[in-house]
Design a binder for these strands. Structure first.
Length: 923
RNA sequence: GCCCAGAUGGCGGAAUUGGUAGACGCGCUGGAUUCAAAAUCCAGUUCUGGCAACGGAGUGUGGGUUCGAUUCCCACUCUGGGUACCA
């Protein structure tokens, strides 16, 4: 083998480690650049080929920036808390820390092989107490803060307490729980300590509230949406219901407006900004109160279309609405109860997506229309969500399609409120429609009618103008073991902070399951198992996966600091992340929460920037091919793909390692998980179990991951790096396929051959290059520089190939050409270029070289080959001097005999000549 | 359902501002080398008619704007991602 990549790569991994080539320090003489990858969750299946895609791109850009004189921070770490490790712990009894450490070791080995320029001295792990100590610290800050809408920022709670002592809460404009009472300073002073704490909890940015969870009674635990399939638990296939549970929440809604407004200045893709915008979901509308006929209960609805108020013919409440019990008449109680039970089994997503299957139930009660005083029926339906608006809507079948469908199904009235409108076909959703049959709103267009309607509603005191947000406060607790414990204990049922600096460490437990009474796993820990224990009990919940990832970019700047989360000095130098690369699937989770925490820390003066990530690139996913098996419901029998329709089945992922050519290895499958030990199979005619498949996201939960190891072994990391880039644009989604990898490997071999003789001896020429050779290398420098500056990593690979093809044709192995070539290639293929850099006689790393400038003079052209088109269709080409004027070009073209043969008898209408571009003759 | 993307040869993709559609690579076909194979090198390769010269069609579908559309506009189809406890 001439190009011995194995030897070369092993040599340079060792060198970089020994020489600390990629160690980064603050250096105020140098301009900084901070490049960050979304750090991985270290799953048991190892790094898959999708992970390095972004890391390779960021590594290439890091090296490019570095060669251009920047001091580049490019760290890596692990988001090491998470469900899969816990699941594995439940199954095997191993502590998640053990498996996590093992997985991290594996990841590190894989990452090292890929030749990344990470500064590993800065590695962080979110599950390490030295890290989560500071996650807890941030939680403490959130717990001890409230948001002030007057100054539009967060403040320490002490400021709020002072205000309560002085004036009560009458003038306070701060987001708080809906049931917060109004009190005077005197009343505040007379409240018991417990009552005061309860009230403060209603203002804290981290607070306790009741929220809905997927509860699986049989497993005695809360499930992630991911773990629920069609209303059953993926594990064990048990029914799942919705249950209310007291949990920690973070008041992200306080920041809605700022999170929305500041999107504007971010260098992020429009689509991701749009996703966040829609997630925040700011809408201007109004609340309207409807009084019930009998007991005069007021039902508040929220609407974005108050202009359609005269079209209301019914009200709909969410099945969870608090007033239902009071409203429902005796006669309808049974129906309503039944309906609520069924709705409780459905997930929110099911309720929203199943619009063809309209369901609902009548409460038996009526409300008065606040303007027309007409009687309108009050219904319950699961298409109304308790969590949005007020959990109740006014049904306007004439103006809203869902309302129209609902009215049709239950034979409710559909009063028309638009000019020239026919209500029998469907709702009128055109925003330009003119209002009719609506008293004072007649003949108005939507915009104006909304204004007038709101004015009237406020005047009559039947409602208020209101800005509503779709975004909800973020639920911040999980009933899990493998997450950050809260620095919280309870005394007399009041949650209190552990004030000392000590990190509350995860206690040991005997099992990673919930207790028999349904408490989270931490409730199993004995008092002595906690490194700190206070009050009646400790908090049993842990923090969610996104806690640690919401601020990790700050810790990388100063990862070893044990005095604070990151020193001011480090923060002032590194500042914002200049370039953040990661998947678009984090659009509203991680990317929104990090923005929230950054703003919060900014408000308290801990950091001096308000947005974490200046520029964001979303690498497209590398998609995998998942395999599926079909379990016959409520059994341990699995039916082959062909026969699956004959049974009632649920579709399940199966590890692609157990599948070859879509045929399941049933023996391996039985050993896969203990629950399948006695699995039975219904096979096809050939006696095989055929799996179904889908091309989709590569993910551990889909068991469809492919690792890079085998490819590195066969082709080397330089080849894999270039191939992943060559696959297509970074941002695009693409299915994984190794077919083309040979081409990239051949390129490196070809390059090697150009500068080595038959005996594999290195050989370069010291002759001066010709203009032609200079032109080739400078065209390549130009193309690669441009491509890198616009992040099109794939086209640069072609440019390298073209360059080597052309140099090979000229048999050019001149030092003055090869040197700049390896420098621009080094970000892509760091190993082979280090090797050649050394062979060229350099004693330092190629990492300390300078990026070459391309020189225009080598690329200037005197002539251009014009495509000559007739009616836009290219017919022939004409090589012309670029000095010619338009008139001269026209003369030459018209006098060309070919022109006549295409024109024939036709008269020329127009001739379009764009110098250096095209000639088009229109006839 | 809702929100966001994407669709170009047999395959991955290129065409940067509306200006030669298919760069580069894979695969395939033929040839050279070889006892043979691998490796390497050379030539061809969108489809279609034709010996050829040269035509016709063509960037998911249908329409529009333009001298000119993969690129801009409108309507749709399919695929993927997210949808609040996977990360």
């Amino acid at each position: 083998m001439d190009y011995n990549f194995k030897k070369i790569e092993a040599k340079w991994i060792k060198y970089w480690k020994e020489e600390n080539t990629y160690l980064v320090q603050e250096d105020t003489d140098q301009k900084k650049y901070y490049i960050l990858d979304m750090f991985p969750y270290p799953s048991g299946s190892g790094l898959h080929v999708g992970h390095p895609l972004g890391y390779i791109a960021s590594d290439i850009y890091t090296r490019y920036k570095n060669l251009n004189g920047f001091n580049v921070l490019h760290p890596m770490g692990y988001d090491s808390f998470g469900l899969p490790a816990e699941q594995y712990a439940i199954e095997t009894g191993q502590h998640p820390e053990t498996t996590t450490k093992k997985n991290i070791k594996r990841y590190r080995e894989q990452l090292d092989k890929l030749g990344f320029s990470f500064d590993w001295s800065r590695e962080i792990r979110t599950s390490d107490p030295s890290y989560y100590k500071w996650t807890q610290w941030i939680f403490k800050q959130l717990f001890n803060s409230y948001y002030c809408h007057i100054e539009n920022k967060a403040f320490p709670l002490s400021k709020l307490i002072e205000e309560f002592e002085r004036n009560g809460n009458n003038n306070v404009k701060s987001p708080c729980d809906n049931d917060t009472p109004i009190f005077s300073s005197g009343e505040w002073g007379n409240f018991s300590e417990k009552k005061q704490q309860n009230i403060l909890l209603k203002y804290r940015l981290a607070y306790l509230s009741d929220t809905w969870v997927n509860w699986c009674p049989e497993l005695g635990t809360v499930l992630a949406n991911d773990e629920v399939k069609d209303g059953y638990s993926e594990r064990g296939n048990f029914p799942v219901e919705q249950k209310k549970m007291q949990q920690w929440s973070l008041r992200i809604t306080a920041y809605s407006d700022r999170l929305l407004a500041d999107l504007e200045n971010l260098d992020w893709s429009d689509s991701i900004k749009e996703i966040q915008k829609n997630w925040i979901g700011k809408s201007q509308g109004a609340t309207v109160n409807f009084l019930t006929e009998e007991n005069k209960i007021s039902i508040e609805v929220f609407t974005t279309r108050p202009d359609t108020i005269f079209g209301v013919s019914f009200l709909v409440l969410a099945p969870e609405h608090q007033l239902i019990n009071q409203i429902t008449t005796e006669k309808n109680k049974i129906n309503v109860e039944q309906y609520r039970k069924i709705a409780g089994l459905k997930s929110e997503r099911d309720r929203q997506s199943n619009i063809k299957n309209i369901t609902g139930v009548f409460t038996g009660s009526y409300a008065y229309h606040p303007l027309t005083k007409q009687k309108i029926p009050i219904w319950i339906s699961d298409y109304v969500l308790a969590s949005y608006g007020s959990g109740a809507i006014m049904g306007v079948p004439c103006g809203d399609q869902r309302d129209w469908d609902f009215a049709k199904k239950f034979k409710l009235k559909i009063p028309n409120i638009f000019k020239n409108n026919n209500v029998s076909e469907g709702a009128q959703i055109d925003k330009d429609a003119i209002i009719a049959n609506s008293d004072f709103l007649n003949n108005l267009k939507t915009d104006l009618a909304i204004e007038e309607a709101v004015k009237k509603i406020e005047e009559l005191k039947i409602g208020k103008s209101k800005i509503n947000y779709k975004i909800r406060d973020a639920v911040f607790s999980r009933q899990r073991y493998w997450g950050e414990p809260f620095p919280i204990y309870y005394s007399d049922n009041i949650p209190l902070l552990i004030e000392s600096d000590i990190c509350v460490k995860l206690p040991l437990v005997d099992k990673y399951l919930p207790t028999e009474s349904g408490d989270p796993p931490l409730a199993r820990a004995q008092k002595k198992d906690w490194n700190i224990y206070m009050g009646d009990r400790m908090e049993y919940n842990t923090m969610p996966g996104w806690a640690g990832s919401s601020w990790y970019f700050l810790r990388f700047m100063d990862p070893k600091n044990d005095k604070c989360f990151t020193s001011k000095k480090a923060m002032n130098y590194w500042g914002q992340v200049d370039l953040y690369i990661g998947g678009a699937e984090h659009a509203v989770g991680h990317l929104l929460y990090s923005r929230f925490w950054t703003k919060f820390l900014f408000d308290l003066g801990h950091i001096n920037f308000e947005e974490p990530f200046k520029k964001l690139i979303n690498q497209g996913m590398i998609l995998g091919r998942s395999s599926f098996i079909y379990r016959v419901k409520k059994t341990n029998k699995f039916v082959t793909y062909e026969e699956r329709e004959k049974y009632e089945t649920s579709k399940m992922y199966v590890d692609i390692e157990l599948v070859d050519n879509d045929i399941l290895n049933t023996e391996k499958f039985k050993k896969w998980r203990s629950e399948f030990k006695n699995a039975e199979f219904i096979l096809n005619k050939n006696g095989d179990y055929l799996c179904g498949f889908e091309v989709e996201k590569m993910s551990k939960s889909k068991y469809n991951t492919q690792t890079p190891d085998k490819l590195i072994d066969r082709f080397g990391a330089d080849t894999l790096r270039m191939y992943e880039m060559f696959l297509g644009p970074l941002e695009q989604y693409k299915p994984w396929d190794t077919k083309g990898i040979n081409g990239v490997h051949n390129f490196l071999k070809k390059f090697w051959k150009l500068i080595h003789n038959n005996k594999n001896e290195f050989i370069v020429s010291d002759l001066d290059p010709t203009n032609e050779e200079y032109k080739i290398i400078h065209a390549c420098i130009k193309k690669v520089s441009e491509d890198l500056s616009r992040f099109t990593f794939n086209t640069a690979v072609s440019a390298f190939m073209i360059c080597i093809n052309e140099l090979t044709n000229l048999k050019c192995n001149k030092r003055k050409i090869i040197t700049p070539f390896i420098i621009i290639l080094s970000p892509y293929a760091p190993y082979i270029t280090e090797e050649i850099w050394q062979k060229l006689g350099n004693s330092d790393s190629i990492y300390s070289a300078n990026w070459p400038n391309f020189e225009k003079k080598y690329l200037e052209e005197k002539n251009y080959t014009y495509p000559v088109s007739f009616n836009g269709r290219m017919r022939f080409k004409l090589d012309l001097s670029l000095d010619l004027s338009k008139d001269e070009i026209e003369k030459i073209v018209l006098s060309n005999p070919k022109t006549q043969s295409y024109l024939l008898e036709n008269k020329i209408k127009r001739i379009i000549i764009i110098p250096n571009k095209i000639i088009n003759i229109v006839f």
